[in-house]
Nucleic acid binder design. Sequence first.
DNA 1: GGATAAAATCGTAGCGCTATGATAAAACTC
DNA 2: GAGTTTTATCATAGCGCTACGATTTTATCC
Lengths: 330, 330
Amino acid sequence: MVDVARRADVSPSTVSLFLRRPEAVSPRASDAVQAAIRELNYVPNMMAGGLAAAGSSVVGVIVPSVRNAFFAETVAALQRELGQARLQIMLGHTEYDQAVETELVRTALSWAPAALVIAGTEHGKTTRQLLEAARVPVVQVWELGGEAPIDMAVGFHHYEVGAAAARHLAARGRRRLVFFSGRANDDKRAAQRAAGFLAAGREMGLAVQHLSHPAPATTELGGILFARMLKEFEGAEGVGIGCSNDLLALGAIFEAQRRQVAIPAQYAIIGFGDLEFAASCNPALSTIKPFGDLIGSEAARLIIKSLADGEAREHPSIDTGFGLVHRQTS
Amino acid sequence: MVDVARRADVSPSTVSLFLRRPEAVSPRASDAVQAAIRELNYVPNMMAGGLAAAGSSVVGVIVPSVRNAFFAETVAALQRELGQARLQIMLGHTEYDQAVETELVRTALSWAPAALVIAGTEHGKTTRQLLEAARVPVVQVWELGGEAPIDMAVGFHHYEVGAAAARHLAARGRRRLVFFSGRANDDKRAAQRAAGFLAAGREMGLAVQHLSHPAPATTELGGILFARMLKEFEGAEGVGIGCSNDLLALGAIFEAQRRQVAIPAQYAIIGFGDLEFAASCNPALSTIKPFGDLIGSEAARLIIKSLADGEAREHPSIDTGFGLVHRQTS
DNA sequence: GGATAAAATCGTAGCGCTATGATAAAACTC
DNA sequence: GAGTTTTATCATAGCGCTACGATTTTATCC
């Protein structure tokens, strides 16, 4: 910055002011500074700026897995919207491990972030304390319900997702409901969807069952659970299958085809996620669609608004809801 | 840090030294400092440290899209390995736009990063200049060939991927080869795979054709291209289809089923990516498997080694190669 | 032209930590 | 115990920029 100032024949303060508030600098000085920046290919040092300003332009984003298409979509939307506001994403993923999550929060805080985005409402005690003490906007995403939000929240009720899937299958005449899920020990949100599905089925007086597995919810596991279900429900009629995500559903479809089992004539299926392939499946997959992109863009909007409002900021929770997408499998 | 020092009855220098090199501090002082850190819940300010040290623990990671499962896997591996080395990922994604890429590089550089990871070998002139002038380790990932590496590279030759797919289909008796691709205007790596496929086919004296589309390479597009191909090759025999990714292949499989076209009896298919569902498809998908996880972990290893070696560091290019996974579609 | 207000520019202390050399304390040798 | 070496601790300048008040310049009014 000192070199830019020298070249533009202004003081370093003026260069700094120009970068922060261009309208506060005269056109003559602006032109000179811009030219100097271009000629010297000057790149500001964000650490110096953040240190002097007692806060940085970093937004810590902590999700269970960036490989999971749900979270990837939200991260992408956050990047898009926050990038426009000159904020940078520092990414951490927990692989569903609470101790990792605590360390990632601590690391994010060491960058004096402008805000934090973290998936879920359930956190370990230390994590929650760190977040509560952080004095920066915190947005919990992808879930509502459970523990009260620390600050702001954007998500939906996974329990209601499961219930909606059960009600949809019942409305399609299914009298016996089965729920497939993976990551039984780690994925609290999938467990909520299962709980909602089973409870809604019971309320409607239907027979319900839960087939779960500790492995991640993959296409392969979907096929395995479908085969297992066939064994248990030999000859049963009117079965509806809820899957904790679309990959399990895809695997179930493939296994049904291999065994000449007709979908949905013999077994109706509904997934969760409305993943990229869902509409193009054969048969096209019914699913519950979360709005991952909307979650990201709403979280970004809340952050930007919070930063503008300062101490007067609010603490909203936004329920994005979800969509029922009725296609050929149900 | 001053508060921690006061509480531990040592100087702030000793606290700092303990955090950087614990073995350089006596056990008595170590215990006192650790206790003070715990009691005060002290979180270091990384910006101050980075500024004073003339460099930070940030690694800028710039990929076309985090929603793309290939890159997500590499980002996940980078996060895992670099996290172990106390480095933090600052993520940017370009959505295949070169101007965005340039800005993301500039932003990453403003954090005085320890290193940069960027996808691809082809970059705009300004981007390349920024990277060359950066004086930090730069690892280009997911591609080899094209322009010479700026510093280090971990990837494979997409042209060879296409050629391998063509040779595989020829070895399975296919006499007419078609390549499906999407994002025809943006995705240079997909274009390379197409070029390799077509060239290898021609070299073997086979009829070759390229069906491409400017839209992203989705399952739906796979179905559309398959339908288009059926029109053009009405009654042709011995056709082999190479797809620029597994999603296109999945869409082609679904469309074949809808039209009672037998895979691979009538048309053989090979994808790219070995995505999560590939093995569980009906029929199971033949594909070319890139090693996204290995690319991430190798890039991380190179960065960590570079940082340890300092000016004496080397500039390797690592060819991870790829695997041919022969399953039921071919 | 003088007085006043607004806009523009500048000077300065300091943000929290590091690297480095200076100093103090501990360990070793004779 | 004295001298030397090694280990541990401390003091200091400074990293590049910001926020803020001081100063200068420009614009407006009478």
